[in-house]
Amino acid sequence: MSEQVLTYREALRAGIEQALIDDDRVFLMGEDVGCYGGCYGVSKGLLERYGEHKIIDTPLCESGFVGVGVGAALGGMRPIIEVMTVNFSLLAMDQIVNSAATLRHMSGGQVNVPLVIRMACGAGLQLAAQHSHSWENFYAHIPGLKVLSPATHTDAKHMLIQALADPDPVVIFEHVMLLNTRGDVLENSEVSMEKALVRQQGTDVSLITYGGSLHKALSAAKQLKKLNISAEVLDLRCLRPLDTKAIVASVTKTHRAIIIDEAWLTGSLAGEISAIIMEQAFWHLDAPVKRLCTVEVPIPYPSHLEQAALPQVEQIVTAAQNIMVAR
């Protein structure tokens, strides 16, 4: 399989471009996606290359343009809607939850909504409390949606294409801290978008995570290896539906689980995953499940406080050492 090295941003763009080329029904719509090239620069240059019928700038009205996206999808198009960040998506939540996610059900299966909504998420860029949150779990709560969290460059490119092929609405979360990182992009997707992937094999403890926390878990695993702890890193990739089989398989192997989730602890996906482990892998556990989540405060602006609020590599290492203490 040939591969190329791209930044995460370029990988996202490559995915959008391929979708635009492959399928005439695909278009990109959102705030500043055209002239400005996207708030995070993902769609830079696309307006020039594909024209204003494919790359559409919208007014600052999330409920409006997401609603238009739902309508376009119902009308047979394959819209990619960019909501600048998950923080603003609350304004479009009615369209996403009450319309996109429910119309197949409400119509008795007569219509479906093949809509893809991309949004940036995560903290770390000093954008303060209104621009830094991780609410993947809000969307992962909603039946009728699929929720993706591409953490690798290959997934950044290919998950969009897989999402567009899905007949139902898919929400994709792009972690802002990944945008400038460089990584290999495989020519094809590794597996279906709904499968979790073991990014690092291990036998002692499962580090279960997704999105922006994956690279933290991987560096923690590296450090743990030096401490003679073999950590398995499971990249969930898809937050709805969760790949429970992969979670159970990993915990069955390692008997210990640490879930790293850049969301607030209470009501987090980490809690959901922990519950799945209790229900399906309880008799394989050799230690209590541990959750590492963001401190329950609005994400602070000052860099040191922002970093202190987020789950960090050192915490993962410590948690793994603690969970292994009686080995």
Binding site: W283, L285, A287
Partner: peptide
């Protein structure tokens, strides 16, 4: 000898 609950992990019990 005190009567006390045995603490054991789920997999140990299984």
């Amino acid at each position: 000898v005190k009567i006390s609950d045995v603490k054991a992990s789920p997999i140990a019990r299984r």
